[in-house]
């Protein structure tokens, strides 16, 4: 495999402010060009922190970042000034959960997309406008010409999310970060957006990191899934392997607690307890206190993330073994 588009090495993020928290703990991750990775996890798992760290959105004064982030061979953590501005939105851009909050309410959708294109090197206003309109058409907004001059509040939730995607893709980023882009949407709109993202990815060949807590959404768009828990990746692999043959007890539990028709009338196999406090992580495996397979080793030693043919796994007592070849 050629050099990956993105590689995270031992990335750790700690917040120290009013409350201290170890949000990310030694995350290692690689993403190839054109690949779609889903980061799956619950609240506090570090999935959103990973995205925000990738764009360096955390306030530097309260955040301690260790390790390295490389995108196309560039060291992201060393970027400054204009380089960082061009990187944000140019090389890597982001789609947020609440499109209503990500747009400035006093400018039209078209103005905002045009401005973003101008900010990333385009000199000609006319060309930028044409490009922005083209983007709106690309995300299948009906009557794009009319919507170009619409203010964010004049669009429905689904349309706003489409416009948000248009804004994110306006400068043709190599990597798109999507932070729960469909969580706030209704079911019938959610599936439209998922399909759109899949289509645009195929068309542009960009890489996507798709953060979600919904396994169903991950299955619809991702090639690969990385399951996160308490700031660590606990299991990673192709989406079909994760869904059909999960190895980590947490992944197994997460899949089991996603209810389906087959569960009717039976108690659900819930994972007991609640996610750990990030300010006060247990020694050893963070999942050990909730895990039915935990042994003494689990609570004393952090399991390493071991690679195999089916992906990677960090567990001392997996439900099924990751085949080693």
């Amino acid at each position: 495999m050629s050099a990956p588009l993105l590689s995270l090495e031992d990335l750790s993020v700690q917040f120290h402010g009013n409350r201290k928290a170890s949000a990310l703990n030694q995350v290692n991750l690689e993403l190839g060009a054109g690949e779609v990775l889903a980061l799956l996890g619950e609240s506090g798992s570090g999935k959103s922190v990973t995205l925000r760290t990738l764009l360096r959105l955390h306030p530097a004064s309260r955040t301690k970042i260790q390790g390295s982030i490389r995108v196309e061979g560039q060291d992201v953590l060393a970027m400054k000034g204009r380089d960082l501005e061009l990187y944000r939105g140019g090389t890597v851009s982001m789609v947020f959960q609440e499109p209503g909050l990500a747009f400035d309410p006093v400018y039209t959708i078209g103005q905002q997309i045009t401005e973003s294109i101008l900010a990333h090197g385009e000199k000609d206003v006319g060309k930028a406008k044409a490009q922005a309109l083209e983007m709106l058409e690309k995300v299948q907004i009906p009557q794009a010409k009319r919507r170009f001059d619409a203010y964010p509040h004049e669009l429905s939730g689904g349309m706003r999310q489409r416009a948000m995607i248009a804004l994110a893709l306006a400068c043709k980023p190599r990597l798109l970060l999507a932070d729960e882009p469909t969580t706030a949407l209704d079911a019938t709109v959610q599936i439209q957006i998922l399909l759109l993202l899949r289509e645009l990815q195929r068309e542009t060949g960009m890489s996507v990191i798709f953060v979600t807590h919904d396994i169903g959404a991950a299955v619809e768009v991702a090639d690969r899934v990385a399951v996160m828990y308490a700031g660590r990746i606990v299991e990673e692999g192709p989406v079909s392997r994760i869904v059909n043959n999960p190895c980590h007890p947490y992944t197994v539990g997460l899949l089991a607690s996603t209810v389906g028709p087959e569960h009717r009338g039976k108690p659900l196999q819930a994972i007991p307890g609640a996610p750990p406090d990030l300010a006060n992580l247990p020694g050893g495996c963070s999942f050990a206190p909730r895990c039915s397979r935990a042994s003494a080793q689990c609570s004393s030693q952090v399991p390493p993330l071991v690679s195999g043919s089916g992906g990677r796994l960090a567990c001392w007592n997996p439900v099924s073994q990751l085949e080693n070849q």
Partner: peptide, 13 residues
Amino acid sequence: AVPSMDPAQRTEV
């Protein structure tokens, strides 16, 4: 509109 849980049978339309 509910996402399918089977990667082999993704929603197409």
